[in-house]
Amino acid sequence: MIEVKEVSKGFGRKKVLNGVSFTAEKGKITSLIGINGVGKTTIMKAIMNLIPINRGEIFIDGEKLSEKSYEKITFIPDAITLLPQMRIGEAFIFMADFYDSWNEERANELLQFFKLKKSDRISELSKGNTAKVNLLLGLALDVDYILMDEPFSGIDIFSREQIANVFTSHLIEDRGVIITTHEINDIEHLIDKVVLLDNGVVLKEFETEEVRENEGKSVIDVMREVYRA
């Protein structure tokens, strides 16, 4: 379980996170929802220790993040993390070199699934294909938790569908996923849990099936209620 406890973070005078708390369980897909600039990405970077936080604590399976954690949790930002001049094959070698959790077999499977070639140079890929390679590099790690920042933003509809298919496959199964989005439509039926954010605070945290069952509301219904209030 990933536990975010009372986390605050400011850049200069601007408070981006103001006491954010929520949890994300293993085996579940948790979605952080909010308009742009509410600190979704900042939360992910804080979990990964890519930015320091001012207050609060973050635990992964009860432990604070350490260098070993990067074999257990990974972050897929909205831009690819390997060098543009690399070919996909070279990116694979880099990952295999540094990560014990790199699963070459799964990487090749994903390569086929996304119809990409090892000889493709990263800088020459289309936007959709770049997003797929980026996703692949994270998914091919045998990690328990995956954080994805806006995996659907700015890419074509077919790539979106392909990426959405990943969520229902064995590639995600049993892992804990946190995904940020400002567009819920693509994934409404895929997610287990929603954390609604605004102005650096958590407005509501709920299980999607529970609100459908108990209140007969869709995720969008809840969002309307919460953001209008």
Binding site: N49, L50, F75, A79, T81, L82, P84, F98, Y99, I122
Partner: peptide, 17 residues
Amino acid sequence: LGKNTFSYRLLMLPTAR
């Protein structure tokens, strides 16, 4: 400052920074 976010990758390597 490069085109891609390689700094993320470097800092997320499972080794002492």
